[in-house]
Write a protein that binds this DNA or RNA. Structure first.
Length: 101
DNA sequence: CGTGTGACGCGGG
DNA sequence: CCCCGCGCCACAC
C-alpha cells in the first residue's frame, strides 16, 4: 500500500465522532494538498472493505458529495445519528462540526 | 498513448 | 445560490 494511502486511512480513522473533515483537508494532512480527488476515489473502494468512518468526510462546501439514491441518505443518516446538523441546502457548518486544524 | 471520468477545490460571473 | 471553467490526478478504455 502507498504511504499516502496509509496516511489517509490513519487520518480518517481518527476523525472524532460528531466531527467532519473535507477531502482536501484529509489530503493536506496526508501530505499532498492536491490529492483531494484521490481521497474521494480511495473512499469508494475502501469504505466497503474496511471498518472506517468514511461518512465523516465531506466536500469543502460543507455538503455530502454522494448523489441522492447513491449513498447520500446513508451518509446523512450516519452523521445525523452522531449529532451533526444539516442547515439549508443540506449544508454542514464546518466552523461548528469541522475538525479543527 | 490519447481521451474521458469523477465522493475535489478555487475563482468568477 | 447556481453554473462554468480550469487545474489536478489516478484509472479505465
Amino acid at each position: 500500500m502507498q504511504e499516502f494511502t496509509a496516511r489517509v486511512l490513519g487520518i480518517i480513522k481518527t476523525i472524532p465522532k460528531g466531527q467532519v473533515m473535507t477531502y482536501g483537508q484529509v489530503a493536506s494532512w496526508a501530505g499532498n494538498s492536491r490529492a483531494a480527488r484521490q481521497v474521494s476515489r480511495f473512499l469508494t473502494t475502501y469504505s466497503k472493505s474496511h471498518e472506517l468512518p468514511w461518512h465523516r468526510v465531506i466536500n469543502s462546501q460543507g455538503k455530502i458529495s454522494l448523489q441522492p439514491g447513491k449513498g447520500f441518505e446513508k451518509q446523512q443518516g450516519l452523521l445525523l445519528a452522531e449529532g451533526v446538523e444539516f442547515g439549508v441546502g443540506n449544508r454542514i457548518d464546518l466552523t461548528v462540526y469541522g475538525r479543527q486544524s
